[in-house]
Design a protein around this nucleic acid. Structure first.
Lengths: 229, 229
DNA sequence: TGTCAGTTGTCAGTGACTGACACTAGCCTC
DNA sequence: GAGGCTAGTGTCAGTCACTGACAACTGACA
């Protein structure tokens, strides 16, 4: 079996992340992709990742196995379909933060902004509740956890670079961008877990919990690092 | 293909980590296992992980593919054969540190102690230089990097628990054990990378570099946390 | 409406793994 | 030292993840 995660993502169609296409072709593709993701997550969460075959997923959507692999680079890849959506939204939000915001404020602002609009985009793919169950599954499936950690590391790296760029620093020379991102990501992870364990599994609950935690990271990292300030 | 990483390690023979067996049976097994690991790492580093098949590895050692899978849970598993050895040595060393040592001193002492004896045990399996090249390969192969991150996370968790136990703390209630371990692991990782990039690839170079860095983590974490102190 | 490009299905093949079973070789006993 | 026991090994057949090639189809656009 192939099983390896694609290096730079063999970019199957739909890689352009829901750009609300106009023509029928594009809409059809998007529908197939979403249907595959939904079916996959449903099966994964119900019977387990390993216990689900790609054939099952394809059959559920009534496409050939070959088609599945044209939309997703691998079985692991579908499992992260919704994560991918979240990350994309967040990164986009981060890139459009006002230039004068201090690092942690920008990161915090980006999460906040990402929530808006995310819920809708996500719901088109899968019910939020399914996304949440998928997250738990990822955390408890060794193969997926491994991939998740790698993905997180990559995201953090991109965040750190963006923060460094904003502050006019060299990521490799100055440890602060990575430190800030590490602290931020740590908080996000903790709230994610707490939310999963807690009783209220609504998006709003996660949102307020996250914001509350981010506010506690402490003022040490909140200030500008630029000398010009 | 199966490709998933074994949850609790399906413990193939030889899982008892080189206990210098007495009888012929055991010695033969150990030799086969080491030969497989050596052949695998050699092939992986020469032609790449994905480009190497399990059949190639087995053929190089003149055993059947089935036998390979009786020694290692999967193709990924061999790639971590030497890492496994290092980790085992380190954890053992940590467990036998004097009870009155402060956390960071115990961790530091454990690395130091692990070096002794490790070189020999390792050389029985593969040349040190091969182990080193294998490390680079892991870092640059996405599938392996993912597994590596997961393994590291697991190791850190075990370290944190041990530190907490020593200090009489609850890992989940007090963040300090995990923080200390995170700082420690971070330093180890950094030195590992520096060593790989630097000119001197000797074990001694790594050892002195690591020690120097560990000494810089700062006195903030070095003190005892116990009130009784 | 016809052409063309993008999408899909079919087929065949590779490679990672696994279970079952038969065979062999050290180990232990008598 | 012969024989039996058992662990280790090879063979075989099967599953499942993936991939390339090619033929059939279907929207898009002139």
């Amino acid at each position: 079996m192939r099983q390896q995660v694609p290096p730079g993502q063999p970019v199957p169609p739909g890689g352009e992340q829901q750009g609300h296409p106009v023509n029928l072709r594009e809409r059809k593709k998007l529908r197939t992709r979403n249907a595959l993701a939904r079916a996959a997550l449903e099966l994964f969460t119900r019977q387990g990742f390993e216990q689900t075959t790609v054939d099952e997923i394809s059959e559920a959507v009534e496409v050939s196995q070959r088609t599945f692999f044209r939309y997703f680079a691998g079985k692991e890849d579908v499992a992260f379909a919704t994560q991918q959506l979240v990350e994309t939204h967040f990164l986009e939000a981060l890139l459009t933060r006002p230039a004068d915001e201090p690092p942690m404020a920008a990161l915090r602002g980006a999460v906040a902004a990402a929530w808006d609009g995310l819920a809708q985009a996500m719901a088109e793919m899968v019910p939020i509740e399914l996304h949440m169950r998928a997250y738990q599954m990822i955390e408890s499936t060794p193969v997926l956890l491994a991939v998740h950690l790698r993905r997180s590391a990559e995201l953090e790296e991109r965040m750190a670079r963006e923060i460094a760029r904003r502050e006019g620093l060299d990521v490799d020379a100055d440890p602060r961008p990575r430190l800030a991102v590490a602290a931020f990501s740590g908080a996000i992870r903790v709230t994610g877990r707490l939310w999963g364990e807690g009783p209220d599994h609504s998006l709003d609950a996660l949102r307020t919990l996250t914001m509350a935690y981010l506010d506690r990271i402490g003022p040490a990292l909140v200030e500008h690092w630029r000398k010009t300030d």
